[in-house]
Structures are given as C-alpha cells and as structure tokens.
C-alpha cells in the first residue's frame, strides 16, 4: 500500500509538471505586443527591407552590419528600396535608432515578450539617454 501512495504521488507530480503552462498562465492576460512606430519612422515609410523580412531577419542584418563596420570599415548600405543608409545602430539620423527612436516601445516590446535578450546595449546606448 505504501508503494502505491508513492507511485500515485509521483504520477501526480508528473502531471502537474507536464501541465505547467496551462495552470501557470491562469489569470494572466497574455496579449501579443503591438509595436509603436515613432514619428520619424512613420515619415520615412520604408525601412532598409520590407516589413516581414525585417521582422524575422533584422538580427541577421545587424550581425552582418557589425561585421562589415568593425572588420571591413564599410559604413554604407544600400537598402532594398535603393536608398543608401549608414550602417549603424545608434548614431546619426539614418541609423536604425535614428528612425526607431524609442527603444522601449519598439525593440523591447517583442524582445521581452519572446524572452530575447540581445546584447546590443551592452555596448550601444540609446540616443535619448545621451541627452
């Protein structure tokens, strides 16, 4: 009889662990984040590539840019719309954050939601923080 209590207790713990996401989220209202575009971004209308590409692949572009700037010294990038951009995350008007000025409303919303912790800001500081 003693063993049965152990077995069923263990089974109960197992079920609790497996169903963890179901009871953990009870009462939480999880809503997919909405990105707020800054005035500058709305005005520019297009980014260096189209929206869905940027949504999925922006980290790869940033990684290539970093490589190009730091190792090769190239600083200009031709966007998919033909326009030239400065390859920079945070300095200058046509850098990423020149347009997407608000980090917490643009970058962090999705990153926090998907638990992504990019180390961009280990080195870069957001432009607003300078003022």
């Amino acid at each position: 009889m003693n063993e049965k209590i152990l077995i069923y207790g263990g089974l109960f713990v197992f079920c609790a662990v497996v169903t963890f996401p179901f009871w953990y989220n009870l009462g939480n209202a999880s809503v997919a984040p909405e990105i707020l575009l800054s005035a500058a971004a709305k005005e520019a209308q297009t980014c260096v590539a189209d929206k869905s590409y940027m949504k999925n692949q922006h980290m790869q572009i940033l990684n290539i840019w970093r490589e190009d700037v730091v190792r090769q010294g190239t600083r200009s990038f031709q966007g998919m719309n033909g326009k030239m951009y400065t390859m920079s995350l945070s300095s200058g008007k046509d850098s990423c954050m020149g347009c997407h000025t608000n980090r917490s409303q643009f970058c962090d919303r999705c990153h926090t939601y998907a638990s992504v912790n990019p180390y961009c800001w280990d080195c870069h500081i957001t432009p607003k923080e300078i003022n």
């Binding site: 963890f20 996401p21 953990y24 989220n25 939480n28 999880s30 980290m59 790869q60 940033l62 990684n63 939601y113 998907a114 638990s115 992504v116 912790n117 990019p118 180390y119």
Partner: peptide, 28 residues
C-alpha cells in the same frame, strides 16, 4: 521552450536560456 508557453516568463527559465546561450556566437 517554456519561454513560448509562459507569459510573464519565470526567472528560472530565463536563467537557463542565458546560460545556454552563454557563447554569444552569431545572431540569433
């Protein structure tokens, strides 16, 4: 993978993820 099934994400899951990605090679 529990980061996809919890919101807010518990700290212990974030810690496991951080340790797992400690090499910081490539992006993602």
């Amino acid at each position: 993978h529990m980061r996809f099934f919890t919101d807010p994400i518990p700290l212990c899951i974030t810690i496991v993820e951080k340790l797992d990605g400690i090499l910081q090679i490539g992006l993602p």
